[in-house]
């Protein structure tokens, strides 16, 4: 009997060790800022964050950064008539969508880089055909420069127009994970199913950070 209780104690200890909390890194640029707290000078780190934005979604409703306050979200860049990497990306993003469907703490934000063709009604049709309803997964469109700027400067995803490409656009398929403080916490290759599975796991890790 005594032996069994020792065994139980040991397993308990071991499992508590294994539950050491996992944390995602904070990506992007950072700078030290000196602050004065209680008369003492301390150095604080300011991380790169997503700035305010204003786009139009598939329901012709204005979407701003405030719609993503207090949630973690995944951002990507695509266009509806794209037959290169976008179908692969959104086939994978559907897995993320279904994994966190009806979880109000998780959202998806897909930016169209084809502002001329991808009007709200075109994006609405696309979303419907993809099997996406409600506003957990937002498809947005906005002025060309604003979308391209936020992609390159803030989400660190490279997109460009290229007349030599048969589809006129060259872009990267990153899925970028943003936390509640709007900091970059992960970037995953949206065309790679293994990395997307990692993203699905990492979203839960990120959500756990806010449980305490």
């Amino acid at each position: 009997m005594k032996r069994i209780s020792y065994f139980l104690l040991l397993t308990g200890l071991l499992s508590s060790c294994a539950q050491k909390e996992q944390k995602l890194p904070i990506l992007g640029s950072r700078e030290p800022v000196e602050k004065t707290v209680d008369g003492k000078t301390v150095v604080d780190t300011v991380y790169q964050t997503i700035p305010s934005f204003k786009f139009i979604n598939q329901d012709s409703v204005t979407v701003t950064e405030k719609d993503f306050d207090n949630v973690v979200y995944v951002a990507d860049f695509f266009f509806t008539s794209c037959t290169s990497i976008c179908p692969v990306m959104h086939r994978n993003m559907l897995k993320v969508y279904h994994a966190y469907k009806n979880n109000p703490g998780v959202k998806i934000l897909s930016h169209s880089i084809d502002s001329k063709y991808d009007t709200p009604s075109v994006m609405k049709k696309y979303a419907k055909k993809l099997g996406v309803t409600g506003n957990q997964w937002q498809f947005v469109n906005g002025p060309h420069d604003e979308i391209y700027n936020i992609a390159a400067k803030n989400y660190l995803v490279s997109v460009e127009e290229d007349g030599n490409d048969p589809q006129n656009y060259i872009h990267q398929g990153w899925f970028v994970l943003i936390d509640k403080q709007k900091r970059l916490r992960g970037a995953y290759d949206g065309t790679n199913p293994q990395q997307v599975n990692q993203l699905i796991k990492d979203i839960q890790v990120l959500l756990n950070e806010y449980k305490h």
Partner: peptide, 15 residues
């Protein structure tokens, strides 16, 4: 494959 998929299952009602 991008649109029709590795397993030929397409994608939703898109492809």
């Amino acid at each position: 494959q991008n649109c029709h998929g590795e397993d030929g299952k397409g994608l939703g009602q898109l492809y």
